[in-house]
């Protein structure tokens, strides 16, 4: 409705001072720039996304690997996509926590009083988060390679696998934002987020093959979208069937996005 109005330019500026392309994406990108600047000033924010995947790989492979797969190398080949996905999914919790605190600062009032889309501050924050997810994915893979992990597919396929994890995490982070908007305390967001992630990550094919599990659990594991994501990424990194699992994972993440992104934006607007 209001978009049909010609925008009123900032007085005292000439055409050369203004940019007009894709206001929605541009505003989100400007705001993601703000988030990235803030992240760079707090390097400790990167500890969890760099140390956690490295630590988990060492623990799972060297502590449990021998017991599960007979030798650590076979288990590393099996578990690496799982660790990569698990640490990325766990790092989606922080955006909800951060936004829940951020939003109490006056600067969000400023954003709301500016002629930008209401969703831009949220979309901007999620774009910046992708940087953290990207780091987690690269660190997991690099650490895995150091420990002896070998891909057996093409580089394009490996890249595709990494992008798939990133896209899934980006969709899932909207659930975290939504929680951050509706839950009063930032601390409870963290608690709830982790609680929801345990059945999603451990109750999947990440750490062990579903065949070894009791029937009732197998039922859940086979429904769990994270299982399909894990199997698809496994296929893309070390070979095996991909298409069906990839399709299911992509569809579920699209559904998660379609449901929770509007919910999150609506809850954010109500918080004004």
């Amino acid at each position: 409705m209001s978009n049909t109005l010609a925008p009123r330019p900032v007085p005292g500026t000439v055409d050369a001072d203004r940019v007009t392309w894709w206001p929605w994406l541009r505003h989100a990108l400007v705001l993601s720039g703000r988030s990235v600047t803030k992240m760079m000033r707090h390097p400790e924010q990167f500890f969890d996304v760099t140390l956690q995947p490295a630590l988990f790989l060492v623990i799972f492979v060297y502590v449990l690997g021998g017991a599960i797969s007979g030798n650590t190398h076979d288990y590393l080949q099996f578990v690496l996509p799982g660790i990569m996905i698990q640490t990325v999914l766990f790092s989606t919790v922080s955006i909800g926590v951060n936004l829940s605190t951020d939003i109490k600062e006056g600067v969000f009032d400023r954003f709301r009083s500016l002629p930008i889309p209401r969703s831009a501050p949220l979309v901007g924050a999620t774009i910046a988060e992708c940087l953290r997810y990207g780091i987690t994915i690269v660190v997991s893979l690099a650490m895995g390679v150091l420990m002896g992990f070998r891909t057996s597919t093409s580089p394009v396929s490996v890249l595709l696998g990494m992008l798939m994890v990133l896209a899934f995490a980006w969709c899932l982070c909207w659930v975290s934002i939504w929680l951050g908007m509706i839950v009063r305390e930032a601390g409870s967001v963290q608690g709830l987020g982790f609680l929801a992630l345990f059945p999603l990550t451990f109750g999947s094919s990440m750490f062990a093959s579903a065949d070894t599990m009791p029937g009732w659990l197998q039922t859940w594991v086979k429904i769990n979208p994270v299982t399909h994501l894990t199997d698809a990424v496994r296929g893309l990194l070390t070979g095996g069937p991909v298409a069906e699992d990839a399709t299911i994972a992509a569809l579920t993440s699209a559904v998660i996005l379609a449901v929770f992104a509007p919910l999150a934006v609506r809850a954010y607007r109500r918080k004004a």
């Binding site: 050369a16 400023r110 002629p115």
Partner: peptide, 9 residues
Amino acid sequence: LVGRLLDLT
């Protein structure tokens, strides 16, 4: 930041 959100270059 505010200037950029107001569409200034």
